[in-house]
Computed example of a mutant assay.
Amino acid sequence: MDILHAFSADNMRFVLEGFYMTLKVAAISIVLSFIVGVVVGTIRYTKLMVVSPILAIVVELIRNLPLLLIIFFARFALPDIGIKFGAMQATIFALTIFEGAMIAEIVRSGLNSIDKGQIEAARSSGLGSVQTLWHIVLPQGLRRMVPPLVSQFISLLKDTSLAIVISLPELMHHAKIVIGQNYNYTLPILCLVALMYFTVNYALSLAARRMESRMG
């Protein structure tokens, strides 16, 4: 009977509201972190004087910090210097910064994996550095980046659950509230949450495989 009560219409609506917030934050963060990662990774690949070394230091610093620390920093430390974020904005900012640094390394590695002979051939045929990067290196590099990028996006989706510490009304936050009504709801609600995460992440994996097969 507790299982039936756990899946009542009110509880399901509340959990789905949290799931919607999770998907919304994840989608925005994926887009922003991808843009940041591609830009930073490409700049690091081109080895621009001054800029690339500075970005390398920033990327390594961020990659070696706990995401939870960055979330706390965005929510509670930035207001001290006049930058005030709500829970949703702080989460998106933290995920974008952290995952952007991870993606930047994926992009840089993907671009570096392109055979130097192709780059030399493109340059000898009259293409400039930017044209070679845009027409030769990036298209091939992005194909090779698909698996690690999707893995990173899946990690990002799961990492949204860390925002429970700043009371973002996401899936785990709402699940915790439902379970707090009756601890007999713990197993059914957590199983439901696990199914929701699995469904979205598995769909991303399938989409990545299909994309790889088409690109191949």
Rank of each mutant, 00 (worst) to 15 (best):
M21R: 13
M21Q: 15
M21I: 15
T22R: 11
T22V: 13
T22E: 09
T22M: 08
T22P: 05
L23Q: 07
L23A: 15
L23R: 08
K24P: 02
K24C: 06
V25P: 05
A26L: 08
A26T: 15
A26I: 11
A27N: 06
A27M: 08
A27V: 12
A27H: 05
I28F: 04
S29G: 12
S29Y: 07
S29L: 06
S29V: 07
S29P: 06
I30L: 02
I30H: 01
I30N: 01
I30A: 09
V31F: 13
V31G: 02
S33L: 04
S33I: 09
S33M: 06
S33D: 05
S33P: 04
S33E: 05
S33K: 10
F34E: 13
F34G: 12
F34R: 04
F34A: 13
I35P: 08
I35M: 14
I35V: 15
V36L: 15
V36R: 14
V36H: 13
G37T: 13
G37M: 12
V38D: 11
V39P: 05
V39L: 14
V40M: 06
V40C: 04
G41T: 10
G41W: 05
G41A: 06
T42V: 04
T42Q: 01
T42Y: 01
I43C: 00
I43Q: 00
I43Y: 00
I43H: 00
I43D: 00
I43L: 13
I43F: 01
R44G: 00
R44P: 00
Y45A: 03
Y45P: 02
Y45H: 11
T46I: 07
T46Y: 00
T46S: 01
T46L: 13
T46E: 03
K47D: 07
L48K: 06
L48Q: 03
M49E: 12
M49T: 13
M49Q: 12
M49N: 10
M49S: 12
V50S: 01
V50C: 00
V50G: 00
V50L: 11
V50A: 08
V50E: 01
V50W: 06
V51I: 15
V51A: 07
V51H: 02
S52Y: 05
S52H: 04
S52M: 02
S52I: 09
S52C: 04
P53K: 09
I54M: 14
I54V: 15
I54T: 15
L55V: 09
L55G: 05
L55N: 06
L55K: 12
L55W: 06
